[in-house]
């Protein structure tokens, strides 16, 4: 029998994979992909809780996360294109203007 814990653990594992991407990749595009993974991992958790507690609130949150993710992609991709036009690369090692 699949319980809530199964889903939550899956959610945690996917979240961990997303984190690996965020920490490891140096390409902005792939960083954005990793962010999508993080958001999806959380969505699974919300949907699972919604189901096992019989409460629609979890799904509502998932909807809004989807909306936020969509906006984020729109803006993020736009910014990335601008950056690429200026510098011709998406490697974040090249963007260190905040060096202290």
């Amino acid at each position: 029998m699949i319980t809530l814990s199964h889903y939550l653990i899956l959610s945690a594992i996917l979240f961990g994979i997303g984190l690996v991407g965020v920490y490891r990749r140096k390409n902005l595009l792939l960083l954005l992909f990793s962010t999508e993974i993080l958001l999806n991992a959380v969505n699974i958790g919300f949907a699972a809780i919604s189901k096992f507690y019989g409460d629609l609130t979890g799904q509502m949150f998932a909807f809004f996360i989807v909306a936020v993710a969509a906006s984020e992609v729109a803006v993020g991709l736009g910014l990335m294109i601008v950056w690429y036009k200026r510098r011709g690369t998406l490697d974040i090692d090249t963007m260190q203007s905040m060096h202290g």
Binding site: M98, H99, G100
Partner: peptide, 17 residues
Amino acid sequence: SRVVQSGNLSNMLRWMG
């Protein structure tokens, strides 16, 4: 600790982690 402020996004993300 000044090294932390490298301005490198990747490093910052790791610190955030």
